[in-house]
């Protein structure tokens, strides 16, 4: 079964010159997935399965919200849930969790603002 989960109103304060590292971590077992990140202006990036990517410095992330879209499919019968953690510079901004009885193939969408501290 397929389901879409949206997480709005996420915010991460970052100084102008600080680089922002986005990390996607598949915590539950047996996930296959892909993440696309749309930042203001150019510099969109992608992550295959778990991993991290530099999405730019604080001043380039102002204004529009950054959108992060992850497609996750869980393929193994022993696993009961899909659990994915999103971190910015090591700080947890969202941990998604859903039971596989609800959906074993999901879209997770984050909307993140990057205001000045």
């Amino acid at each position: 079964m397929h389901k879409i989960y949206r997480y709005r109103n996420l915010s991460f304060k970052v100084p102008d010159e600080t680089e922002v590292l986005l990390m996607v971590e598949f915590i539950s077992d047996g996930n296959l997935g892909h993440t696309a990140i749309n930042v203001p202006g150019s510099g969109d990036s992608e992550i295959e399965n778990s991993g991290s990517v530099n999405i730019g410095i604080g001043s380039n992330l102002r204004g529009d919200k950054t959108t992060v879209s992850t497609e996750v499919a869980n393929l193994i019968p022993q696993e009961d849930e899909i659990r994915v953690a999103y971190r910015l510079n090591g700080q947890l901004i969202k941990e998604h969790v859903n039971l596989k009885s609800e959906a074993d193939k999901v879209k997770i969408i984050l909307y993140i603002k990057f205001p000045e501290p």
């Binding site: 296959l32 997935g33 892909h34 993440t35 696309a36 990140i37 749309n38 969109d44 992608e46 295959e48 529009d64 919200k65 950054t66 959108t67 992060v68 879209s69 992850t70 497609e71 499919a73 879209k107 969408i109 909307y111």
Partner: peptide, 13 residues
């Protein structure tokens, strides 16, 4: 998944 995540991210943006 790569195709869908890129389209979804742009559409939501």
């Amino acid at each position: 998944q790569k195709v869908e995540s890129k389209i979804v991210s742009e559409a939501e943006y």
